[in-house]
Simulated scan of single mutants.
Amino acid sequence: MLRVFVCSCFGVTDRQIEDHAAAGACTPRQIASVSKAGTDCGSCVRTIQGLLGRGACPRRELMEQGEEALSATALSEVRLSEAA
């Protein structure tokens, strides 16, 4: 298994970042809170952002679903007020 170090300061690999993202960490700050990656020299933060941008984020998907539900509810309320 090939390990690609994303954060050399703390020895965090791309696989670890992906695992944390799968567990729900969707931002570099959330990755930093569970792994310390990006908290020392900061040179890996853009790489972490790139890795997070490649995959689906469970929290982001839930937020988008919530926004869609909220939009549908708001649209229904507008239609009801127009009908009154």
Rank of each mutant, 00 (worst) to 15 (best):
R29M: 09
V78R: 15
C26G: 15
A32I: 04
A25F: 01
G38R: 06
E64W: 04
V34D: 02
L70W: 13
V34S: 12
C44I: 01
E64L: 13
R29W: 01
Q49S: 14
R46Q: 04
Q30T: 04
A72N: 12
G66F: 04
A32R: 15
G38N: 06
L52K: 00
S33M: 03
S33L: 08
A69I: 04
E77A: 14
L80Y: 02
S71L: 13
G42A: 04
A69N: 12
I48T: 00
Q30M: 11
C41H: 07
M63W: 15
Q65L: 05
S76A: 15
L75F: 09
S71G: 11
V34E: 01
R79S: 02
S71R: 14
R29Y: 02
G53I: 00
C57S: 06
T73L: 10
T39C: 07
T47C: 02
C26M: 14
C57L: 05
G50D: 11
T47A: 06
A74G: 01
L51W: 03
E61R: 12
V78K: 14
I48P: 03
P28G: 05
L75K: 15
E68K: 15
S33C: 05
R46H: 00
S43V: 07
R46I: 00
G38M: 12
C26T: 07
S35G: 08
R60S: 02
E77F: 11
C44N: 00
G66L: 02
I48L: 09
L70T: 10
M63C: 09
G50K: 04
S33F: 13
A56E: 14
R59N: 08
V45C: 06
S81E: 12
C44P: 02
D40Q: 02
S43E: 02
M63F: 13
V45N: 05
A37R: 08
T39F: 04
T39P: 10
C41W: 12
V78H: 15
S71N: 12
C57F: 03
A56W: 07
E64H: 09
V45I: 15
S33D: 13
T27F: 06
S43W: 04
A74S: 09
A32V: 10
S76T: 09
T27R: 09
Q30N: 09
P28F: 01
K36I: 00
G53T: 03
L70S: 11
L70E: 15
I48R: 03
I31E: 07
T27S: 14
G66A: 11
C57N: 01
R54H: 02
C57I: 02
T47R: 06
L62F: 07
G42M: 05
G55D: 11
L75G: 07
V78W: 08
E68W: 12
L62Y: 10
P28S: 03
L52R: 00
S33I: 01
L80G: 06
R79H: 05
S76V: 01
P28M: 04
C44Q: 06
E77Y: 10
